Computed example of a mutant assay.
Amino acid sequence: MKLLIGNRNYSTWSLRPWLVLRHFDIPFEDEVLQLSGPGWRETIAARSPTGKVPLLLDGALAVPETIAIIEYLADSFPDKAIWPRGRRERALARAAAAEMHAGFSALRTHAPMNLRASHPGKVDLDAVRRDLARVEALWGEHLARSGGPYLFGEFTAADAMFAPLATRLRTYELPVSDTAGAYVEAIYALPAFQEWLALALQEPWIVDDDEIDVIQGRVAPGTLV
Rank of each mutant, 00 (worst) to 15 (best):
I69W: 02
A98Q: 11
A102I: 13
G51I: 09
M113D: 02
D75I: 01
D75L: 11
T109G: 04
E99K: 13
P112H: 10
L57R: 14
H119F: 15
G51H: 07
F77M: 04
K122E: 15
L107A: 08
R90I: 02
D75V: 07
G121I: 13
M100P: 02
H101M: 08
R85W: 02
E71K: 01
H110E: 12
D79L: 07
L61N: 14
H110D: 07
T109R: 14
A97W: 02
K80G: 09
E99M: 12
L107G: 09
A95I: 11
R87K: 11
P54D: 13
D79R: 09
R85H: 07
E71S: 06
I82G: 04
G59W: 15
A97N: 05
E99Y: 08
I70M: 11
Y72G: 04
R88L: 13
D79G: 02
T50V: 14
S76E: 05
P78V: 00
H110V: 00
A96T: 08
T66H: 08
P54L: 12
S105A: 15
A106H: 09
E89L: 06
E65Q: 12
R94G: 05
P64D: 11
A91S: 15
A117C: 00
K80H: 11
H110T: 03
E65M: 00
P78L: 06
G121S: 11
A62Y: 03
R90N: 10
G51M: 13
A98V: 08
I69C: 03
P54Q: 14
R47Q: 11
A93Y: 05
F104H: 05
L73G: 01
P64S: 11
L61C: 11
E65A: 08
V53H: 04
E71R: 12
L92K: 06
L115F: 04
A62V: 01
A93T: 05
A68V: 08
L115W: 01
L92D: 03
L57T: 10
I69K: 02
R47M: 09
F77K: 01
S105V: 14
P84N: 12
A91H: 10
R88P: 02
